[in-house]
Design a protein around this nucleic acid. Structure first.
Length: 303
DNA sequence: AAACAGGCCTAAA
DNA sequence: TTTAGGCCTGTT
């Protein structure tokens, strides 16, 4: 369901001369929901007086921030060409959330699901970078979100390159920022170095993923063009430390496989709590992954 | 202090 | 084929 960005888009500069994009009338995009629902680990709240909620982070080698008000969405540190080529898609502004949510609800009359969709109305599944997504969810296993964040930040700082950033972004929380290391940079660093960075038992997993990609044993292009989500998952699971859950997250968040349905402890809890026994994610349809994210975010909010 | 954190690997039935 | 333990590290 990719399409042109169905919003009015303006290309402006802020008071500090920073190139920015304003997207008018965006629905289903609440910055906190998007960046804090557990799909992404590199965006953090930026405190300034411009917006109540502004989140900054690195993707595609650039530091940007995203904020909103009643008029629409603001993306700071981005020019027109790159917005059209990269960021509109990264932020999934070309995705019709309303239709997808309706599709999900049309397949189930489950009340918890209905509540979850309402609660997570502002969620959009980002279209993140493949390699970084794979590593992020390898790191996520048996781990908690603050530490996942700090580990990803640490290996980016130590092994990645300085991110691109427009002058004046200091007003948007920029101090310094680094892109996630490439497979080559991970291999170059070596397992011992990864251990020193406190990746623990995940160090050899990350290294194995990097090594398989560098040697050509695993191709993320092939994963992307696999016939089915199931086949794509099978390819990813050839990496040590990648099981069904990590594979599903990688596919949903990094490969636009909207039907991928990661089952973790929280989702298992939701299923047991609210659904009648033979639960089949396939029954939730082509956007089952979005449904999963609604359920996950909803259940965690109850804590 | 002991248990737990968006799992997965390995060994053993 | 399924099922326990154990795992790096940091926090509570």
């Amino acid at each position: 369901m990719e399409r042109e960005i169905p919003y009015v888009v303006e290309y402006l500069k802020d008071k500090g001369g920073v190139p920015m994009v304003r997207v008018l009338g965006v629905d289903h995009f609440h910055t906190k929901s998007v960046f804090d629902c557990g799909q992404a680990f590199r965006f953090m709240p930026v405190s300034n007086t411009l917006h109540s909620e502004e989140w900054g982070g690195v993707a595609y080698g650039r530091y940007i921030t995203v904020a909103e008000d009643e008029d629409g969405l603001y993306i700071y540190g981005v020019e027109r060409e790159e917005f059209l080529r990269v960021w509109g898609h990264y932020l999934a502004l070309d995705f019709d959330v309303s239709t997808a949510a309706e599709d999900i609800l049309s397949r189930s009359d489950n009340e918890a699901l209905r509540n979850a969709v309402r609660y997570g109305e502002g969620i959009r599944i980002l279209r993140q970078e493949r390699w970084e997504t794979l590593c992020s969810f390898i790191i996520s296993q048996n781990n908690n979100i603050p530490r996942i964040r700090s580990l990803i930040e640490r290996i980016s700082r130590e092994l990645g390159e300085s991110a691109e950033c427009f002058d004046g972004m200091q007003a948007h929380g920029y101090t310094d920022a680094y892109s996630f290391p490439t497979p080559e940079q991970i291999v170059e660093a070596g397992v011992e170095r990864l251990r020193e960075m406190k990746l623990g038992f995940r160090a050899p997993y990350i290294y194995d993923a990097a090594e398989k990609i560098c040697s050509g044993v695993l191709s993320l292009d092939e994963v992307g063009s696999a016939e089915s989500t199931e086949e794509a998952a099978r390819l990813l699971m050839t990496v040590k430390g990648v099981g069904p859950k990590v594979a599903a997250c990688t596919l949903l968040f990094g490969f636009e496989r909207d039907d991928a349905f990661p089952v973790d402890v929280w989702v298992r809890r939701v299923i047991e709590k609210y659904f009648e026994p033979p639960f089949d994610p396939l029954a939730l349809g082509p956007y089952a992954g979005l449904a999963q994210q609604y359920l996950f975010y909803y259940e965690r909010s109850l804590e």
